[in-house]
Design a protein around this nucleic acid. Sequence first.
RNA 1: GCGCUCGUAGCUCAGUUGGAUAGAGUACUUGACUACGAAUCAAGUGGUCGGAGGUUCAAAUCCUUCCGGGCGCGCCA
Length: 567
Amino acid sequence: MLQNLRVIVASHYAPLLGKDVALVLRLLESPKGEGHGHLSLPVFAWSKELKKAPQVLAQELAQQMSANLPSEIEAVLPVSGFINFKFKISYLQSLLATAILARRGQVGHSTLGAGKKMLIDFSSPNVAKPMHIGHLRATVIGQAIVNLAKTQGYQVVGLNHLGDWGVQFGKLAWAYLKWGSEYPFNEKPFESLYALYVRFHDEAERTPELENEGSKVFKRLEDGDPEILALWQKFVEISLKDYQRIWDQLGVKHDLVRGESFYNSRLKGVETELEQKGLIEASDGAMVVRFEGETMPPCLIRKSDGASLYATRDLASALYRMNELHADLNLYVVGMDQALHFRQVFKVLEKMGYPWVGQCHHIGFGMYRFKDARISTRKGNAIFLEDVLAKATTLAREVIAQKNSSLPNAETIARQVGVGAIVFNDLMNDRVKDVDFDWDRALDFEGDSGPYVQYCSVRCLSLMRKYGKPIPSSFTGVLPSVEEGELLRCLLNYEDTLKNSFQNFKPHFLAGYLLELCRRFNQFYNKCRILGEPAELEQGRMTLVQMTQAVLTEGLSILGVETPEAM
RNA sequence: GCGCUCGUAGCUCAGUUGGAUAGAGUACUUGACUACGAAUCAAGUGGUCGGAGGUUCAAAUCCUUCCGGGCGCGCCA
């Protein structure tokens, strides 16, 4: 969309400016304020070269340009050091019609990642522990990046790096053998599993010897004891089934489960390779990789008792993803508290001589902060993700009862609105920052929020129903008001937004864009009458409505938020 | 102590890679439903972009240095 405009300006005027087309293309930007046209070219750099005042230079250039306008451009205007290009409304209309109405389902998509494969590790909970509020970010950010990557043409493989290995399984198995019969594993398998987990840690606080028992049973698991192995498989299945219930609500589906246990057979190979490359050395009985000239502590590869560690496993996972799955891009959506770990792992891979390490990225996100004490899954005082979603749905149900009591499918819509509010609230902020978790704000359905965007889409759909006729796929008419012009200009930015949002791995670019689009639309809607206007104007405005609706649905769906038909 | 990261309106946050007069939401004050859906819109109040230097035509944005918050720093993941 906007790129089409850039190409027109750059290819038409680069010769006149005596500059490369590519350079002009890069300099052209979307003006921030209103009334500055559709594209803007700053001339400050050239004004310095030529030793001319920017205003004067812009004036001169704009004059020359005006003498030779391409057919799509209406005017070229100098404004204090910028040259602003205003395109003809008829051209913009036909451009948007082909870019939006003719591309439903893939508006703004690009082929940036065509032929490339992206792997992304996200959500990844730990077996037997319910997902809590902290998993919301890892899940929702990950899924949004999955969807963004698809809009750029990537083949995407969503990986579930399930926490399915470690001493805790010994503890869990021990607890199950001892107390398992007291819990309703048939009716409530996951609740029972979690109850065992909490109970073990409770009891272990009083009688620390239990820790040893857990370790012993874990050793049996590692040695392949069939009884324990069967239990382990059972725990994994129970957990995955429970997680999928929540993922379904959030629109999440992994393509591949590759839990920690998957890498067990590959750990030895990693160590051997590090040895062969002379990177590993002994230190206090453990094996480490040191970083000369780096302000980073050494990376621990093997414990003094011979066991492997977190870093070993992630080295194995990176090798697997890049060398065996042949990823072109390898992402880890994991909290910022693990930034050092990933810096170390990537540095080790670099020292191992793998050139693809630059394609591995830690997509970190800030932590939730709470006014009261820290949450702990062990203590059982965590805020569970399931409860958050249920609470939001309940509130949405109440709001619907109050505002629109005759709404059909109220239950489905309550879920869409409630969950949408939670998801959008998370995604609209920059992921790198810590966020204060505030129930009131997360559950606010007014102002900047998911329901605000959903409501805007519902309004569009309602208009389309009332209009009753097929809306033309191309449109004409002048669209006289400022609000229409600004809405149209906003629509032009969708394609760039998708691309930037993906390239920075920042879904909040898209969320912020959707909020702006809604604001523009609502301003237009409140200012301009649509239905009942003279046919040409009515059609023109309805086309605008339809395009807005298309972008809103597709944009929300990329963020993992559903758009109701009514609400 | 060292490293990473954040600091923008009373509060919660945007500011798309250095551009035009720093924007939203919320809260507060006020106005708009015999109206295409008021989960909306309009108007007002609210700012030394943590402080100080620097880089340049141009800095909330880049560099340096302080101050303050968060996280991390060898056998957990």
